[in-house]
Computed example of a mutant assay.
Amino acid sequence: MPQQDHAASRRSRLTDVLGIDVPVVLGPFGGVSSVALSAAVSDGGGLGSYGLYGYDGAAILKTAAQLRAATAKPFALNLWVPTGSETTELPRTEFDSYVRALQPYFEELGLELPDMPERFMADYGEQVEATLEAAPAVVSFVFGVPAPEIVEEAHRRGIKVAGTATTVEEALALEAGGVDAVVASGMESGGHRVSFLRPAEDSLVGTFSLVPQVADAVSIPVIAAGGIADRRGFAAALALGAEGVQVGTAFLATHESAAAPAYRELLHSPAAGNTVLTRALSGRLARGIPNRVISELAPPAIAPFPVQNWLTGRFRPTAAAAGNTDLMSLWAGQSARLIRHHSAADVLAELLAGA
């Protein structure tokens, strides 16, 4: 069936709300989003997403401009809502102890030990202001419900708002907060578990269970995420009541992504079939392929978020450039073994075959 027939057959409330042609959303990646991949998904009729974790206002505006230059289609920018649990201040002695725990990795890569920064993460208010100024078609949030004034201002500017839930209660909170669509993210998803009403360990609901419960509980469109990598997952998500899917790992493995070549190669290997939940690399629970950092680090050597994320972020880029997967974040979902394609267009085509 020609692609335009697939698109016509998959029109839904979600595609109408988001202004897209097919109900496929690119999962936003913190640190490995790329303009090329986001644009490719948008050009294919889906919603390309770009993760803004760590970006200041100037970087956000620059990225939005690059996305607009790369695609004339709608795209989404993604922000992390502060949960209130972030460690914003740390005694110098504690900081030094966490650095010592990571010292072997810095030495292995020939890097100097980092000094304590003025802050460990970007200013959320600045991020929101820049994102609204950038005016993407959609702004999506993880780790919470955006404040009412943010949702109102987004809507005033013609920006749609999406939120991410890992439980039915979170989905209801997001709907009450005025979002236009909710991503139901099952525990199979790669990367961070974005729970916010209960601890992540107490919110590990599988996609197959979560999606129909959320679809029954809310009146806004539901986007299924977690363990979806091919046409079968797409079809199953629709059968469960979702009006679209969000796919991360299968797109992360394409040549358009910003993942290092060694990372992409690993995603296409049998090793990607084994994933674990860990706090070792960021201080927050996340799903990825196990490596040496994950196997060697354990409490109390793991700093709280965002300190641990900042610290490992001082050596992870160097490790990625060197192809050293033992010292990288290798986020991946539980269906990575289903990955077959190396281009965003082929992943989209595979998913839409489930229509």
Rank of each mutant, 00 (worst) to 15 (best):
S195K: 00
I289W: 00
E107P: 01
R279H: 10
R231F: 01
D123W: 05
G248R: 02
F75C: 09
Q334P: 10
A236P: 00
I223S: 03
A225N: 08
A70E: 14
V35R: 07
L210M: 08
A280Q: 07
G163V: 04
R316P: 03
V247Y: 06
A229K: 03
A184C: 09
G186H: 01
R119M: 14
A258D: 03
V151N: 09
A65I: 10
P270K: 07
E153M: 14
L327I: 12
E153D: 15
S189Y: 12
D216G: 12
Y50L: 03
L352N: 12
P304K: 10
H268G: 01
R198F: 11
P136G: 15
A321F: 14
G248I: 04
A64L: 05
L90V: 13
A319G: 09
M1D: 12
I220Q: 05
E108Y: 13
R198D: 06
V222C: 00
P146C: 08
R287I: 04
R232C: 06
V194R: 12
F29C: 14
I294R: 03
V161D: 10
R10V: 08
S34G: 09
A344R: 12
A345L: 10
A355T: 06
E118A: 06
P114S: 05
L277H: 15
A260D: 10
M121Y: 09
S9K: 11
A224M: 11
R11A: 12
R264Y: 10
L102S: 00
V222Q: 00
S9D: 13
L172M: 13
P290I: 12
L52C: 12
A253P: 03
M187S: 15
E296S: 02
H255T: 11
E126G: 01
